[in-house]
Design a protein around this nucleic acid. Sequence first.
DNA 1: TCCGTAGAAGTGGTTTGACCAAAAATTTAT
DNA 2: ATAAATTTTTGGTCAAACCACTTCTACGGA
Lengths: 244, 244
Amino acid sequence: MNDNTHLSPAGSRQTPASNSRLYLQIADKLAQQINAGELKPGMRLPAERDLAQQYDVSRQTVREALIALEVSGLVDIRPGSGVYVLQEASLKSSLLAENAPGPLEIMEARLLLEGDAAALAAERISNEELLKLKAYLTQMISLVAQQRSAEAETFDGKFHQLIASATRNSALQSMIEWLWALRESSELSQLFAEKIRRQVAGPNIEAHEKIYLCLSRRDAAGAKAAMQSHIAQVTEAYVLLIGE
Amino acid sequence: MNDNTHLSPAGSRQTPASNSRLYLQIADKLAQQINAGELKPGMRLPAERDLAQQYDVSRQTVREALIALEVSGLVDIRPGSGVYVLQEASLKSSLLAENAPGPLEIMEARLLLEGDAAALAAERISNEELLKLKAYLTQMISLVAQQRSAEAETFDGKFHQLIASATRNSALQSMIEWLWALRESSELSQLFAEKIRRQVAGPNIEAHEKIYLCLSRRDAAGAKAAMQSHIAQVTEAYVLLIGE
DNA sequence: TCCGTAGAAGTGGTTTGACCAAAAATTTAT
DNA sequence: ATAAATTTTTGGTCAAACCACTTCTACGGA
C-alpha cells in the first residue's frame, strides 16, 4: 500500500487543515510540506518542542500530529534522535487519486483473480455447490425480470463469492471478498454501480449463465474465459461512464 | 491495507506489542481485540480515562494509541461522543483470523496472483524500477555467496514487492503484500522457510534472473511463466517437506 | 401522558510543566 | 589522535487541570 496521505478520519471530506482537531491541522500542514518537497526524504524535522513553538500549540499536540504522520508512513520517529521524513513527494496521487484502489484498479484485479478462481473452481466445485449456484442464477433471473435490479445484485455477489469459495483456497477467497468489499466502500464505485443500474436492467444474465455452464462442465479454460469476459464487460461500462 | 494500515513504523519488524513505545503497545493490543472480533464494528470502546486506568498508563498515552488506530482506519474518533470501531474491509483483519490460509493455499494464490502481476509489470515497469530490481538481484547474489541466506531473503521479498508495485495496481499490490505478510505470520510457513533455508543456500538466483530478464525485455508472457515456474518450484519444496 | 428543553454528566481536545531513558554531541583524559 | 566520560538534545511518559461539544436525564409545561 502506498501514498497513505489520508490523515483525516475515514468519512470526513474536509478542506485540508480545516479540521476541528488541532493535531490533525498540524499533521496536515506538515504533510503538505513533505508532499510539496519542502521537507525532503531523510531530512530531520525540527524537535517537537520547536515545532510546538513554531505553530503556537502545545508539545502534546505536535506529538499527536507526528504520530499520525508516522502511522500513515510519511515519517519515521526515532526516540532520542528525531523525526525523519520517509516518503518522497507523491503529488500526482495525493490530489486526484485516492490512497484506496480506484474502481478500475479493483476491476483489473478482479479480472485476474476471479478469472483464475473460476478456472480453479471448475476443477474443484462440488455438485451441491453447483446446485446452489444454479439457485442463485434462478433468483437473479427472476429478480431482473421484476426490475428489482438492486436485489438481483445481491445474488450477483453471492454467485461470485460462491465460486471463490469453490476454489478451496481461503486466501483466494479472502482476497476476492476484500475486492468486493472495497467496491462497496468506495464512493466512486458506488456511483458507477448506481448509474449502471439505471442503464441496464441488472446483472448480465447471459454472462453468468455461461460461467455456470462452464463450471458445470468442469471446463476450467472456458470458465476462466467466461469470467474474464464478464468482468471485462463490466469494466467497459465503467470506462464509458468515465468518458462522459 | 490501508492499511495502510500497519501500526508499527515502516522498517520495524518486531513481535506485536513488543515495541518500546508504550502508545504503540496499547495500539497493538486494541487492534488485536478489534481484529479478533472482541470489539465489534460500531461498538464504542471505553473512554480514554477508563482505558488509561485499565492498561495502567496515562490518558495521554491512550490518546496517542487511539490516534494511531484512527489514522490506520481501525477506529473513528468522535469528539464529545466516543471512539467507535469501524467495520473494516481490510485484509489485515483476517490476518490473525483463526482460519488463516495454510502455506499451500498461500503459495497457490501467489502462483496465480504474482504470475499475473509479473505479466502486467512487464508492460508497465519503468527503467528506474528495472535498475532497482537489478540492484536487489545483485545484493541477493552477493548475500547468497556469503551464505547469508536469511538476509538474502529480505531482498527476495523486496524483489517480489517491487514487481507488484510495478503493476500500477494498488489493489494487486496490497494483496501480494498481504500474502507475504501471511507467510511471515504463519508459524507453519516460517517452519518451512527455516527448513528450506538449511537445505538450499537461499533464494533461487537463476529463477529471479530469468524473471528479471523477461521484465527487462517487456516480455509479459515470459515473465508470467518465469514467475509461476519460480513459485511452483518453491511450492514443490514445501510439498516435499510435508511428505517427510 | 407526552414532549421539549434546560441542566448535568460524559467524552474527546488542548494546555502546562515536569521527569525519564536513550541517542547525539561535547568535553575530557589517555 | 583516540577513547572514555559527561553534557545536551530528543522523544516518551506522566500528571492535573480546563475547554467545547455530545449525550443523557430529569424537570416542567402542554
